[in-house]
């Protein structure tokens, strides 16, 4: 078990290193003059010298690369042009804002989705199944930003039931992050974006669950359970579902990756002050250090979530031997 985890961890660090490298060369390729990417225009010559020194901009490219890795490791991403503040200080809270929006929504999707999937498999051939599949596909086809716009228009503006932007109603005072989110006002702001994300992501686990359930239901142990006279609900949810969960977990890991990217549009539509919105603004204002840091953080979040899913996967599936790298997912 420990070897499996360490292996996955090493794999994750390797991936992170590759991404950092790709990012470094991508920026060098796009911006032949790296000072542009790190030094804002209005900087005094002294400050310019400090930045040049810290990032080794006067040295050779390999040396710059090494210093870049060192800076990333120590959390030194430079100063944001737009905020004129260290990037690390800005993105810290944004990460929390993003996670507090994303994780509950994904959790809802991957709880409700599989449960509905079991129901669909159970009611195979019925109108409910056909309707459920179609609905799931339709929600997966509607772009999140568009659903968000519609919900804001209808429930936010027309009916006035929900706030249409941000995490809290201004002005508000909060000593720290938890002070900010443990309020009804925050929950009120959270509802619409959560619905948008959940609607989009529920369809996939539902359909996957249904498909695997149908496969599992043909297996012997289900017939045994039926022969033992267990109730249909018990067979479905206790016996079959447990064995059909694996592909859903695999998909959860992939979805986490997609969600971090897809989050951007939701944050933009709802003006949610998360990492995605920050990245969006950084791109608009050509704030290179901020954009770079935001991207790295997003990639890191995806890797961590994938890592977590790998661990869960390993726990769930006895067939996964911890000694192998489990290349085939």
């Amino acid at each position: 078990m420990a070897r499996y985890i360490v292996g996955k961890l090493l794999q994750m660090l390797f991936t992170l290193w590759v991404i950092l490298t790709v990012l470094f060369f991508l920026f060098r390729l796009g911006l032949p003059d790296p000072t542009v990417a790190l030094v804002t225009d209005g900087l005094s010559p002294e400050d310019r010298a400090i930045v040049t020194e810290r990032f080794g901009l006067d040295r050779s490219l390999p040396m710059q690369y090494v210093m870049y890795l060192g800076n990333v490791l120590t959390g030194e991403f430079g100063r944001s042009f737009h905020y004129n503040a260290p990037v690390t200080a800005i993105v810290g809270e944004r990460v929390a804002n993003t996670l507090i929006l994303m994780l509950p929504a994904i959790l809802i999707s991957y709880t409700v989705g599989p449960l509905l999937g079991v129901l669909l498999a159970w009611k195979r051939g019925s109108k409910l199944e056909a309707g459920g599949i179609t609905t799931g596909l339709v929600f997966r086809s509607a772009p999140m930003f568009w659903v968000g716009m519609l919900l804001i228009m209808f429930f936010g503006i027309q009916l006035g039931w929900f706030p249409t932007s941000g995490m809290r109603t201004f002005p508000y005072e909060a000593a720290n992050f938890f002070d900010k989110i443990f309020t009804l006002d925050f929950l009120h702001h959270l509802i619409l974006p959560t619905i948008v994300i959940s609607l989009y992501y529920t369809g996939l686990p539902m359909l996957i669950m249904r498909n695997t359930m149908l496969e599992v239901m043909g297996e012997d142990f289900i017939e045994f359970a039926e022969a033992r006279g267990l109730s249909k609900a018990r067979i479905m949810y206790r016996h079959a579902a447990r064995n059909a969960l694996l592909p859903v977990v695999t998909q959860a890991a992939i979805t986490a990756g997609l969600a971090v990217g897809g989050q951007v549009v939701v944050e933009v539509v709802f003006s949610w002050p998360g990492l995605g919105l920050e990245m969006f603004n950084a791109v608009r204002t050509s704030d290179y250090p901020l954009a770079q840091a935001a991207f790295m953080l997003m990639a890191t979040i995806i890797l961590l979530l994938n890592f977590a899913a790998d661990i869960v996967y390993g726990k769930l599936d006895p067939r996964v031997s911890y000694s192998s790298q489990g290349a085939g997912v």
Binding site: I19, G30, G257, V260, G261, V264, M298, L303
Partner: peptide, 15 residues
């Protein structure tokens, strides 16, 4: 799988 699509496209547009 670790590269988020939208942010990746944003980096390309930024550069």
């Amino acid at each position: 799988y670790a590269l988020p699509l939208e942010p990746f496209a944003m980096v390309l547009v930024l550069l």
